[in-house]
């Protein structure tokens, strides 16, 4: 028997597989496809202080081995998420949740974090300072070490639950940002959010997305994600939730060898609604094939020598 359990800042997960924020709604949608209690946890749809419609459509475009999205944080606002969405999810999922929080000011992040901190089913607060699709917030905090540290320390002061900072790959030096949030008190980091991309409709001679740019996800970003998780692992001691293009059990192992303590699966959920369940089912056989008895022991395994 392979031991798939992992622990993130004291929060124990049965396995390291977590659907990534923005690709899994508020979770209950997927209960129509399979028993979502097989998941390690769920990272909820990115939540802001106020309800948001998001960007105009089109906000999805296909790319080779992936997609672009410019959804722009559509969500019903923190109060509705806590009062309506989480209670609905609680009926079909009984494990600790990851609340994913976005904002346009330090105060916004603190406001939502304080609210989620009081929700018993929330195990971890994931602070998204990396959304590439909104202006005047999101990624602008994640591309500066100073601003990233500011958000981190403000949220840390306000809450009791573990705080993970979700980082953007759209930076020159991921190690610098990772170190800055660790020094500011972050309990862990999540990476990567989506790298910015574009596609152009050649018949209309215009970008396909109405927002012009969007975040890339899918297997095409896996190598970029592995490289950044690898670099971040060398820079910090806090745990890393690794993500970016994971679509199979072998991808999970690869990401953990790069330095991840757990992983998030994103785009794969959109093309195969049962992707996470399938990965969890494949994982024991993949581990056995590579001589892994306890999956938590392989974190950072690719850094030997």
């Amino acid at each position: 028997m392979v031991d798939l359990s992992v622990t993130l800042s004291g929060v124990k997960l049965d396995n390291p597989i977590i659907p990534a924020s923005g690709t899994f709604g508020f979770g209950y949608e997927f209960a129509d496809w399979y028993d979502i209690n097989v998941l390690g946890s769920i990272s909820l749809k990115g939540t802001t202080k106020e309800p948001r419609f998001g960007n105009p459509t089109p906000r999805i475009a296909e790319i080779p081995s992936g997609l672009l999205n410019s959804v722009g944080l559509q969500n019903p606002g923190v109060d509705d998420v806590i009062e309506k969405e989480i209670p609905r999810l609680e009926k079909c999922f009984s494990k600790p949740l990851i609340a994913n929080i976005s904002g346009f000011s330090v105060e916004d992040y603190v406001y939502c974090a304080e609210k989620f901190d009081k929700v018993s089913q929330v195990g971890i607060l994931e602070i998204n300072i990396s959304c590439p699709n909104v202006h005047g917030g999101g990624m602008s905090f994640g591309t500066s070490a100073k601003a990233a540290a500011l958000v981190t320390s403000a949220v840390k002061k306000a809450v009791k639950k573990p705080v993970y900072i979700k980082l953007t790959p759209n930076v020159t030096d991921i190690a610098e940002i990772a170190r800055a949030v660790e020094e500011a008190g972050a309990d862990g980091i999540s990476l990567i959010n989506t790298p910015l991309g574009m596609r152009i409709d050649i018949s209309r001679r215009k970008p396909i997305l109405s927002n012009k740019t969007g975040g890339m996800s899918g297997p095409c970003v896996l190598p970029l994600a592995l490289r950044m998780v690898f670099q971040a692992y060398e820079a910090v001691k806090i745990p890393i939730i690794g993500m970016g293009g994971i679509s199979s059990a072998n991808d999970v192992i690869e990401m953990m060898l790069a330095g991840a303590s757990a992983v998030q699966v994103g785009a794969a959920n959109l093309v195969d609604p049962c992707a996470c369940r399938n990965i969890i089912e494949e994982l024991p056989a993949s581990c056995e094939k590579y001589g892994i008895k306890k999956i938590s022991e392989i974190t950072g395994g690719a850094h030997n020598g």
Partner: peptide, 27 residues
């Protein structure tokens, strides 16, 4: 119709505004 990511309500890619709030074209 709208460009869709998933087609079953997960990604919020195809949302349109209606008189009773944002609705997903796919769901």
């Amino acid at each position: 119709e709208e460009r869709m990511g998933c087609g079953f309500g997960a990604c919020m890619g195809c949302t349109m505004q209606t008189k009773s709030g944002p609705k997903r074209v796919c769901r």
